[in-house]
Design a protein around this nucleic acid. Structure first.
Length: 330
DNA sequence: GCGATCAGCT
DNA sequence: CACAGCTGATCGC
């Protein structure tokens, strides 16, 4: 008799019925793995499994009284049912983890959000073998092929230099956790004065506590933004300090920047395609390295990418398509 | 006057 | 398309 592979069910995220754990559930559950500290992957579960660094970030963003099992990367841990698990770096943001598990159903890997290319502000992604793979496929169609980081970083620096020399203030939009620190890293040798939005600074401090180094930046002061490169969340366009700021030039930093519509949609003067997700080729490369016998895809172009895998002879299923229904029922 | 919580809005 | 979560209002202290 062939042993049954891992079962994977969509349910407010992902559910593994054979071991009773959720993965990145957005709603509070009895037990859930939290792959990283972005808000749409966290909730106040009774028991949380996460990396040490995600624990630190969570403590700053969503304090609660969950029981937390936090592990350093690579350390083996045995769940109550005997399943052996390990967390591996996913390369998405600080602390982002993949969950590798092994029991009588074979080996299992959940990527969480991941990026194969080494970044300047995240651990480097690894690709362990697994029989059953659940992977994130945000950019799972061929048109998403990101340019080299250095090329994009140089573009951001040029934008800042030109704006400053025109006596205007460059405002760079990126999420407070992850993207902002990657932008900061891109400015490492730019030698420009920088101010971080309070939310961005709060997250950056955790990176520094973990040993990451960034260029100098000043404390955010609405009265003294002029002459600084300002790094802030996209929603800042609604805030009064932004509306009061004269002579500014704005740029949004996002992987969706590869779409020509993004510049118009964002209302910014410039768009730079910097992402903390894998692009299409890296998604394919990842599957090749993990060499799974069955794949479940979640997020973004999940159906398109699972179709791509099937044409290459790999059993693949799109999982995330019931999420909208799930949200409506709640 | 402050943090916590929530609706609103991308 | 959608990567994720900020702003501002109000409530409780």
């Amino acid at each position: 008799m062939t042993p049954q592979l891992w079962q994977v069910e969509p349910e407010g995220g992902i559910f593994l019925p054979q071991i009773g754990w959720h993965l990145d559930s957005r709603f509070p559950k009895a037990r859930s793995f939290v792959s990283h500290a972005h808000f749409d992957h966290m909730a106040r579960h009774r028991v949380i499994l996460c990396s040490d660094r995600t624990r630190r970030l969570m403590a700053r963003r969503l304090p609660g009284n969950s029981e937390i099992i936090s592990l350093p990367f690579g350390q083996m841990h045995r769940l109550d049912d005997g399943t052996e698990i390990k967390l591996h770096p996913a390369g998405h943001i600080l602390g982002s983890a993949q969950l590798a598990a092994k029991n009588h159903h074979g080996s299992f890997l959940y990527t969480g959000d991941f990026k194969l290319r080494p970044g300047l502000s995240a651990e480097t992604c690894v690709t362990p073998h697994a029989d059953t793979l659940v992977m994130e496929t945000t950019y799972g169609v061929p048109r998403y092929e990101f340019p080299p980081f250095e090329e994009v970083a140089a573009g951001i620096r040029k934008f800042c230099y030109e704006t400053l020399s025109d006596k205007a203030t460059p405002v760079l939009f990126g999420y407070s956790l992850g993207k902002s620190q990657e932008i900061l890293s891109a400015l490492k040798e730019a030698r420009v004065p920088i101010m971080l939005h309070p939310q961005v600074e709060k997250m950056t401090r955790v990176y520094e506590e973990c040993g990451f180094e960034f260029p100098l930046y000043g404390r955010f002061d609405e009265a003294y933004l002029t002459g600084h490169v300002v790094i802030c969340p996209p929603q800042s366009t609604k805030s009064t300090w932004f509306q009061n700021l004269r002579r500014k030039r704005t740029a949004t930093i996002t992987g969706w920047g590869l779409d020509s519509s993004t510049r118009y949609r964002s209302g910014c003067d410039a768009v730079f395609p910097l992402s903390d997700h894998a692009d299409y080729n890296d998604l394919l490369r990842f599957v090749e390295r993990v060499n799974p016998s069955r794949v479940y895809t979640v997020h973004g172009f999940a159906q398109e990418f699972s179709q791509t895998l099937r044409t290459r002879g790999i059993e693949a299923w799109a999982l995330g398509k019931d999420n909208q229904l799930e949200l409506k029922l709640n």
